[in-house]
């Protein structure tokens, strides 16, 4: 021990200790921090764009629906006694469409099915708990279960085709643990 490290009082010791500089962080650590921050920003940006895309799709759907209702008119929809055919998976169920696939019916040039309605019902939200992104950053896994209902109508035959399909969406939401 050098003589200049002999200290008589606490304040001498404090002064000496303050002269010591902590070692710098390694370049590798700085790079890791930079990458983590980049990832946080990209998740944020991605989330923001997903939100914007959802809002735009919803708005587009609403506008489309509005124009369709305008074209058809509510009066035309009443009292037509149309036959409702419910389709699950890709098969149609109904006398007129028996054994015909949904796609075939809609692709048929003779038929004149017009989209009438598209609705998504959120019926279940399942929280699957915490996962770690890249083994470090905590995030919550949330499953959203929807039922999507799309409806077409052929005005000539007064038939309605309704397709119901399940849809599952997984959202990974970064969480703060402080």
């Amino acid at each position: 021990m050098n003589n200049n490290w002999k200290m008589d009082t606490d304040s001498d010791l404090e002064k000496k200790l303050k002269q010591l500089s902590p070692v710098n962080c390694s370049v590798r650590l700085e790079e890791r921090v930079g990458k983590s921050l980049d990832r946080e920003v990209s998740i944020f940006e991605k989330g923001k764009w997903c939100y914007v895309a959802s809002v735009l799709s919803f708005a587009a759907g609403a506008v489309l629906g509005f124009f369709m209702v305008q074209n058809v008119g509510f009066d035309e929809m009443d009292g037509l006694g149309h036959e409702v055919t419910t389709v699950t998976s890709s098969k149609t169920v109904g006398n007129d469409f028996e054994d015909a696939t949904f796609a075939t019916v809609l692709a048929d040039e003779q038929s004149d099915f017009i989209p009438m309605r598209a609705t998504g019902y959120l019926y279940e939200i399942k929280d699957e708990g915490v996962v770690f992104l890249d083994g470090v950053n905590p995030a919550r896994e949330i499953y959203l279960n929807y039922l999507e209902v799309v409806e077409w109508r052929d005005h000539e035959s007064n038939m309605t085709v309704r397709m119901t399909s399940p849809k599952q969406e997984l959202r990974v939401v970064p969480i703060n643990t402080f």
């Binding site: 500089s21 902590p22 070692v23 710098n24 962080c25 390694s26 590798r28 650590l29 700085e30 890791r32 921090v33 983590s36 921050l37 946080e40 470090v136 950053n137």
Partner: peptide, 27 residues
């Protein structure tokens, strides 16, 4: 960073662990 690392090293058994702590805390 250096101050955080010095403190983290008082609370972790190795430099590698301290670096993990500093990274997560800073982010």
């Amino acid at each position: 960073g250096p101050k955080m690392l010095l403190y983290a090293r008082q609370k972790t058994p190795s430099l590698a662990d301290a670096e993990d702590v500093v990274q997560e805390a800073f982010v």
